[in-house]
């Protein structure tokens, strides 16, 4: 497909990027371009203006602080997140999701924030960050604001961003003591694939009791979705295998998958139960370590 002719800007500050976005309302923000350029080349997206964030210094920072937690900048690469020592140590599931996204070439260009802003229901990085209670830092014409990630996704390709707003970072709080996370995704091809279904969870234990949990399912609805009733089943109770099984069945009931080229609705529904079961027991194990 013909790539439309477009103007390309590479501002060096967030403020400049925002004013550019204000002056060119049809402009599109780009980080790695691994989704955007494909849409332009193969899906008929015709853009007049692209604003790259790559020249804004400091925006690719990955910062970890013992008390504040983790901040991943808008242009931090998936490849860098996947091997960052602090992320590997304190947020292993975040690193795992980044490492499991697409392929080496895409990870070397693409970003975690880009994966979120593209707002695909199948985005590999979303479920874990959602389960961990991450929030996105947004900057726009009217200043800065912070939005919990679970209020960020509005539909396939749609987010809570207002015109001329940019996501500058995602912030992930530190895991509380005795907490564990897990993410498992499935696809038709073993490696290098787009997930047909994925489930992430965070579990906090007090002795054997599940003090709190958040469970998110990917690729089974218009956005990654939370399965609150499944959470209710285990929250406040001793996290037994039996209870975990029940939570899986409930999560499956709460998911709203469709049939598409990657899997049937029926298979997805069944897999939500299986994966929910598996992430809960993995997270339980990690929480008690």
């Amino acid at each position: 497909m013909r790539l439309s002719h477009f103007d390309y800007y590479a501002p060096t500050t967030v403020a400049d990027a925002i004013s550019l976005l204000q002056s060119k309302p049809d402009a599109h923000v780009m980080a790695g371009g691994t989704d955007l350029l494909i849409k332009m080349r193969h899906a008929g997206l015709k853009l007049k203006t692209i604003i790259s964030l790559k020249s804004i210094s400091g925006l690719n920072t990955i910062a970890f602080d013992e008390t504040k937690g983790l901040t991943i900048g808008a242009t931090a690469l998936l490849a860098d997140v996947a091997i960052h020592p602090d992320i590997l140590k304190y947020y292993p599931t975040v690193a795992q999701a980044a490492r499991g996204t697409a392929n080496v070439q895409v990870r070397n260009m693409g970003t975690v924030i880009g994966n979120l802003c593209n707002a695909s229901p199948a985005a590999d990085n979303a479920p874990t960050l959602l389960a961990m209670g991450a929030e996105v830092h947004i900057q726009g014409p009217s200043g800065k604001r912070t939005v919990p990630l679970d209020q960020f996704f509005k539909g396939p390709g749609m987010t809570a961003l207002e015109p001329a707003e940019i996501v500058t970072a995602v912030h992930v709080p530190r895991l509380t003591p005795h907490s564990g996370t897990a993410y498992i995704s499935l696809s038709a091809r073993g490696q290098l694939d787009c997930s047909a279904v994925g489930v992430a969870t965070m579990v906090t234990l007090k002795e054997k009791v599940c003090e709190d949990t958040r469970i998110f399912v990917g690729a089974c609805g218009p956005t990654p979705i939370r399965v609150p009733k499944a959470e209710t089943i285990v929250r406040g109770k001793e996290l037994t295998d039996d209870l975990i099984d029940q939570a899986g069945v409930q999560a499956s009931a709460e998911a709203t998958p469709i049939t598409d080229v990657r899997a049937s609705a029926d298979y997805r529904e069944k897999m939500v139960a299986v994966l929910t079961r598996r992430v809960l027991s993995q997270a339980r194990k990690r929480a008690s370590e």
Binding site: A188, R189, C194
Partner: peptide, 16 residues
């Protein structure tokens, strides 16, 4: 044909 690319035409690659 709905899967006209290598993302959705699931040909195994070297890692598989």
């Amino acid at each position: 044909t709905l899967n006209t690319n290598f993302l959705d035409y699931k040909m195994p690659n070297a890692m598989d």
